[in-house]
Design a binder for these strands. Structure first.
Lengths: 187, 187
DNA sequence: ATCTTTTTTTGACAATAATCAAATTATTCG
DNA sequence: CGAATAATTTGATTATTGTCAAAAAAAGAT
């Protein structure tokens, strides 16, 4: 079975009918490197899933790019605030490798949630997962040293160093690229 | 109308029948200062709402208390990871003033979500709100200086200085109490 | 292959906050 | 009230990371 289906089942089991309806609402795109999935000041209308490739979620702060999230193969990702509040996004989402991306439009997902209790439950559990992840990440940012955060990242995503430029990784970890470079050389 | 009801309606509107069923599932307690709502290593079975008073959500890290959240009058709060994963909590929740607290048990809430699509939707939106808040807080921890975070906290909760000891506020802001004391004296 | 551009590393220095220790001020309780 | 305890402030020092600048290495283009 496709990993995407496994990931969906892993969040909450849907009846065959609900699952069919749900899967039909997703679109699939093949996009080149550096393709924008969400542009600045646009409303981030999709919940995405990256089948293959890497996407970077970032924004500008005092003229500098801040990487908020990096999504590698088989992960869900979206611009939380813009998606839910349906307001223009300060986040940009861009592929940094050629990628195959799936996406479901906000309005379709909301309509499905409205009509179908099982899909509503699925989405509730999906958001719960995000919230739990967000808690762990906050704790990590607040209390772990930069080096420890880098090592954990490597343990979770061994391929990240080959696929993502240092400056993005540094920004994602909340440190400067100079600091990350120094952490790396202490080995 | 009670503020609690307004807060519930503000998350998602329930039909009168659903609202009645939902409200019946909540319990109310009057508890003294320093009362534990969740003890360490217990499963945090309730989603709480503090009607009046202050609750502190904290945990131990290297023998030190870390305040993760402070809930003042009319706020929802809970131990996210323990509640959802139904595993023993590393978080403790304790009142720091005599308080009136409402709570709904995990199993009751889940049963209601299962039976009632509107309540499932309510809960989905409630979690969405938590997730958005969590995003904003992460951004604040990562990019704002301690002083700025303190000033924002004061703006949002003017009474917090009178009601919560400095050491808890410092910990909540992710700084030491010495640093907060120095921030305070620069005025 | 070599020139150009981008990315990464290194160095010197500054800033922010943590740590440790002690003094001072508030608060609680008999 | 006044002693005991807890909370807050202050001081001196250290550690971590950021900033700015430049060099080195790597990647991309002609």
């Amino acid at each position: 079975m496709e990993i995407f289906h496994k990931r969906i089942d892993g969040i909450s089991i849907l009846s065959p009918e609900s699952k069919t309806a749900f899967l039909q609402a997703w679109d699939e795109w093949s996009v080149p490197k550096d393709h924008f999935l969400v542009r600045e000041n646009a409303i981030a209308n999709h919940l995405f899933y990256i089948k293959k490739g890497v996407a970077r979620i970032y924004y500008f702060k005092n003229g500098k790019e801040i990487t908020e999230w990096l999504a590698l193969d088989n992960e869900f990702f979206f611009s939380i605030i813009s998606f839910f509040e349906q307001k223009p996004s300060n986040l940009l989402i861009q592929t940094i490798e050629p990628a195959t991306v799936l996406g479901i439009h906000h309005d379709k997902l909301m309509a499905l949630c409205d009509q179908n209790h099982e899909i509503e439950r699925w989405f509730r559990k999906a958001i719960t997962g995000s919230l739990i992840l967000s808690q762990y990440r906050m704790d990590s940012i607040q209390f772990e040293a930069a080096q420890q955060r880098y090592e954990k990242l490597l343990a979770n995503y061994p391929s990240i160093v080959q696929r993502v430029p240092l400056s993005y990784i540094a920004s994602f970890l909340g440190i400067t690229q100079e600091t990350l470079s120094r952490i790396r050389s202490n080995h």
